[in-house]
Design a protein around this nucleic acid. Structure first.
Length: 496
RNA sequence: GGUCACGUGGCCGAGUGGCUAGGCACAGCUCUGCAAAAGCUGCUACAGCGGUUCGACUCCGCUCGUGACCUCCA
């Protein structure tokens, strides 16, 4: 058993805009923080793409042997509908609309989120902290920022003093923004009188008497600002500086920019060493977003019950479709592309099914070790899943050729190929193999026996060269969704 | 308006200063009684215009087009 060439891993650090070698702070431990959902509505496919990106990152780091502490939060308070005037909380607003207690909303959509994560085979994070369970930490952080002079209290709210911070630190370095331009581009809005600068953002917000979600604080009853929870919880579980912070591109500004500012202002140290941002899922060239009305839920996707969908697609097909595109590129959803992925995945799964049946030969006519190294190399090159999948299709060709007796592989190479596919497809890409479209009904004993009997009858007809009868059997089975395939070794069947 | 991306063959999508991405579709061939599957082969592209270079799809500039962020968003 030769040593696998697994390293080094390069990832694009969005704060430097460069591909950098990943070196954890305290190897073999890796701290990974990913911005989770705000649980006030159903997640849509665009959200799934983002979480899938970091799921694969988590899986790959684990595969490389790192001990990853993966923190993905649930935002259950503090996410303002409008930061400027009313300051109503998204969850509170939803609660009012649905006439539910805010925590009912949180529970409902948290459950829904978890269902979707399971459906798409996303691994659970090591810690899934909620904002409401970390009020103490958040208040503590506000306090530190105040004490350090980077925030001010106004009328029961506390605002982060961006211009003051920018005197000493590089506010805007992540998103590439310049503070003068930001000020120049600010629109006049209502209710800004409390803020000294339009760029300032709330880290603690006073709650009115009728406000549903509020907690006592040194500044009165209120609730934490949106950006604060991630800073407070990442600091608590991963330390003041940790390895990787991930999220969607659309969180870069202002959310992640504010996170950096908060951590630096509170603890005097940059919180994150590698920032990673996943790109958007688009539909007809436009970002999938609730406001566009072009999003569909995973349920609609699977049933095909949506005007943009010609048919339903399985969760694993969707996952495969997403991974055929690099995470940093936009990915455009279309029925044509989905069907291409569905067929490609199907072909791959059928090849995987053949793996245990391959007959070893005396020599190797394909280099499995090299294939393996190319797979690993693709992943180490900024998680290039599309290239890795392309390599796997090379493996598919090899498997089929060996199966056809056109290519020889030794028993050892077959074993290696088997474990390569298992680790890359199942462990790293997170495609559940048993759910391959290939054979869902194979464990149905009665059906298997029935089809076998038809195959036997058809073989008899064929032996007597009664092709009309044999074709009739095949056609009728085909009409009920059973496809027969003849080969030298006999006839096999599968579901259409 | 400001900032930043992107524009690849019929479709989706990688990548690189000179050498085949891959998937799907299509065509031909092999196999087969026929079909399906599988394999082989073919179709061979990098928005436009300039520039740098021995050589650019890959670097630079401009033009056109598209998108994202600047307000909540994965």
């Amino acid at each position: 058993m030769s040593e696998l060439k697994k390293g080094p891993l390069f990832i694009t650090n969005t704060i430097t805009r460069q591909k950098e070698e990943f070196k954890p702070l305290n190897p073999p431990h890796v701290g990974l923080y990913v911005c989770g959902p705000t649980v006030y509505s159903d997640v849509h496919l665009g959200n799934v793409r983002s979480f899938t990106t970091f799921d694969v990152l988590y899986r790959w780091l684990t595969f490389l042997g790192y001990k990853v502490r993966y923190v993905r939060n649930i935002t259950d308070v503090g996410h303002l509908v409008d930061d400027v005037d009313a300051g109503e909380d998204k969850i509170a607003k939803r609660a009012r609309l649905e006439q539910l207690e805010p925590m009912e909303i949180v529970q409902k959509y948290t459950n829904g989120f978890h269902d979707v994560m399971r459906l798409f085979n996303l691994k659970d994070p090591s810690i899934e902290p909620t904002a409401t369970a970390h009020l103490i930490e958040q208040i503590g952080m506000v306090d530190r920022i105040l004490k350090n002079g980077y925030a001010y209290e106004a009328n029961g709210s506390v605002y982060f003093d961006v211009p003051k911070y920018a005197e000493k630190f590089a506010y805007g370095e992540l998103s590439g923004r310049k503070i003068d331009e930001l000020i120049a581009n600010t629109r006049d809005t209502e209710g800004m009188e409390e803020k000294r600068s339009p760029l300032d953002f709330a880290i603690w917000k006073r709650a009115d008497a009728h406000h549903l979600m509020k907690w006592p604080s040194p500044w009165g009853e209120g609730f934490p600002g949106w950006h604060l929870e991630c800073s407070a919880m990442s600091t608590k579980y991963l330390g003041p500086t940790f390895d990787i912070h991930g999220g969607g591109m659309d969180l870069k500004f202002p959310h992640h920019e504010c996170e950096i500012a908060q951590s630096v202002a509170a603890d005097g140290i940059a919180p994150v060493r590698y920032w990673m941002h996943g790109n958007m899922l688009t539909v007809n060239g436009r970002k999938m977003a609730k406001s566009e009305g072009n999003g569909f839920t995973p349920e609609e996707l699977i049933t095909g019950n949506h005007k943009l969908l010609e048919k339903g697609y399985s969760a694993m097909t969707v996952r495969f479709f997403m991974l055929q595109c690099h995470y940093a590129s936009t990915l455009d959803f279309s029925n044509e592309a989905m069907q291409a992925s569905e067929k490609g995945l199907d072909r791959m799964m059928k090849a995987i099914d053949l793996l245990p049946k391959l007959k070893p030969g005396a020599a190797d006519e394909a280099d499995i070790v090299a294939l393996e190294q190319r797979c690993h190399g693709a992943m180490n090159d900024d998680l290039n899943t599309p290239v890795m999948i392309a390599e796997l299709f090379e493996g598919v060709r090899i498997i089929n050729s060996v199966n056809d007796g056109k290519l020889a592989l030794t028993a050892a190479s077959i074993e290696r190929l088997k474990s390569l596919f298992f680790s890359m497809v199942n462990d790293v890409l997170g495609i559940r193999m048993e759910e391959g479209p290939a054979d869902q009904a194979k464990d149905d004993k009665a059906l298997e026996g029935l089809v076998r009997e038809f195959i036997r009858m058809r073989a008899e007809a064929k032996a007597q060269r009664d092709f009309a009868a044999s074709d009739a059997i095949r056609d009728k089975l085909s009409a009920v969704g059973i496809i027969l395939k003849d080969s030298k070794e006999g006839t096999t069947w599968e579901r259409a």
